[in-house]
Each structure stands twice: as C-alpha cells, then as structure tokens.
C-alpha cells in the first residue's frame, strides 16, 4: 500500500530523518514510536506531502509523491499533532468546508457529516466555534476532518495526546474499528497505546529506524536477560543474597525496596534458563516467608528504553 524508501530530510544542516525505509500493508495499523524529536512528525509530514523530502521516495499505491501529490492527498486523511483548526469557525461550518474541498457530492454531504458526528461523538458541539472547544473535542473534530472522504489511509500524529483516559479509550476504539478495513499510520510516544492499538511497530530514534516488527517479535528480539521479582518477609538482605547467589544462572541480586520487614528483591537471571523452580526450592529450605514471586516479562517500555538510550 505504502512504500517508503530511504527517505531523508534535512533542516538546514540538521538531519531530522535519515534513510528510513519501510512498507505498510493494506489493512495494517502501524505505530511509529520514538522519543521526542526522533523524527516521527517529520516522517508523517513527508508521507502526507506537506514537506518535501530532501531525498528518497514515497509511493502510495501506484502514485509517487513528487508527481501525483494531489492523487495521494485524495487517498489520505491526515490529523496533525494538536489538531490545528480554524478557531473562529463553527464545527459544522468547518466540516462543511472540508466536505466541499474534498468534493463530496451535495446530496451526500449532510448524511456524511451526521455519520462522522456520531462516530466521533461531536453532535453536541456542532454549533460551537472550534476555538471554544476543549482539547478532546478539538481532537475529535480533527479526526472527523481526517475521515471526511472515507480515506483508504489514515495518518494520525499523536491522536490521543491531551485527552482524558475515557476519551483515550474511545479514540482507540474508533481507531481499531476503522483499522479493520483501512490502513492506519499513527505516531505516539505512549508505549501502552502502541501496544494496545497497533499490529506492527516501527521504533525510530534520532531519525533512524531501530526496530520494526510486531509487539511480540520485538519483545523476543530484545530480551537478553530474565528478571524475577520476589518479596520475602523476616529476612536479612545479606543472608538472602548469599543464599540465592549460589544458584546456577543467577547473575545478580538487587534490593529494590524495604518496607517494615518486607524485603523486595530483583534477581537477574540468564535468559535461557528457567530458574523459578530452583529459587523456590532454595527459599523453601529456609525460615523466610515468601510473599510474592513473579517473573517480569520484557515490557515494551524496557525495549523502548534500551533501543533509544543515548549512547
């Protein structure tokens, strides 16, 4: 559906996006993940034809961005960050204006606007100026704007930023629902969001792709060590440390916290081995009382931090 090839963008001497290459399949929800200033927005802007790439190419279906920008714009719906809309226009007037520019047939215009108002939940603000709306409603109006022509591809730049938790869940639901038939590219720096909504994640850092794959494959690729968290009552850290360090495969024992007489520990183990049984048996031989015992799975947070650490 979309092919991005060695896309590069320089702002004067600053390299914002450096030789990015990836493909997006039809019907995929792709999450573009990265810390602030990684080049997410710049990438999306080049994808939508708002910025001209310094070099590299973008193909959408059979169109290339240099030659057929207008055709690509007809296929795309784009919601920029912060949803910058005309403040003095009424929501209805604005959507009507967008419908006109998008060349929606006159007799279908009203029903399309109604449909979008229902979908995005903006019925109650249709006759208010956009400038007076709360952040969440502005974002929804922006989403309605992006979906006006029922685009094949929806590009969303941080669609849930500034929304309250209920709205976030709602917007995610909408994205999931649309994503069944359409292709969606969204950028975010919230990892749980990417995990919850996306089929595939591309992590970029300092303008380069550092990881690309489904959430599961990303988790597998990075986990070099296994973490086990335990909480023990009535025990001395030194004694526990000495005891547990004797187990084959345990690399490090660290104390995370101590409250009352509860000792919180983290064991770093070699990835290959499953040491849970050994650890349990070891503790069973002693007088300590085991309160909690769980293996920490590699979360996306850890992967993300590991991949985007400054060198």
């Amino acid at each position: 559906m979309i092919q991005v090839e060695s896309l590069t963008k320089y702002y004067k001497d600053l390299c914002a996006v450096d030789q990015i290459t990836f493909d997006i399949q039809k019907g995929e929800i792709l999450g573009l993940l990265g810390p602030n200033g990684a080049g997410k927005t710049t990438t999306l802007r080049m994808l939508t034809g708002f910025l001209k790439p310094t070099s590299g190419s973008v193909r959408v279906q059979d169109f290339t961005i240099d030659k057929d920008v207008l055709e690509i714009k007809k296929l795309l719906g784009y919601l920029p960050e912060e949803a910058p809309l005309y403040h003095d226009m009424l929501v209805y007037d604005y959507l009507n204006y967008v419908a006109n520019i998008r060349e929606i047939e006159k007799d279908q215009k009203l029903s399309r606007i109604r449909q979008l108002a229902d979908l995005c939940g903006i019925n109650e603000v249709m006759h208010q100026p956009i400038g007076e709306l709360s952040k969440g409603y502005k974002q929804r109006v922006g989403l309605a704007h992006a979906m006006m022509n029922d685009p094949e591809i929806l590009v969303l730049d941080e669609p849930t930023s500034g929304l309250d938790p209920n709205q976030i869940v709602e917007i995610r639901k909408i994205i999931k629902r649309i994503g069944k038939q359409k292709t969606i590219v969204l950028s975010t720096h919230i990892l749980s969001e990417a995990e919850a909504t996306c089929d595939r994640i591309v992590i970029i850092n300092q303008g380069k792709i550092v990881a690309d794959g489904s959430t599961d494959s990303l988790k597998k690729s990075v986990s070099r060590s296994n973490l086990i968290n335990i909480v023990i009552q009535d025990a001395d850290f030194k004694a526990v440390k000495n005891e547990l360090a004797t187990i084959d495969g345990v690399e490090k024992v660290t104390q995370i916290d101590q409250t009352d007489n509860h000792l919180h520990l983290r064991l770093t183990c070699q990835a290959a081995a499953d040491l849970r049984a050994d650890i349990y048996l070891k503790i069973k031989q002693t007088e300590w009382i085991l309160l909690e015992f769980h293996q920490a799975t590699q979360t996306l947070e850890n992967i993300f931090r590991e991949l985007t650490k400054e060198n």
Binding site: T48, K73, Y78
Partner: peptide, 14 residues
C-alpha cells in the same frame, strides 16, 4: 501561526 496551514495542505488543493 496556528498551524491550520498543515491541515489545509493535507487536503487536495494546490
């Protein structure tokens, strides 16, 4: 200034 220019240009206009 408000950035609506980006939205305007994301629509099929020259």
């Amino acid at each position: 200034n408000i950035g609506s220019y980006e939205i305007l240009l994301s629509m099929p206009v020259t």
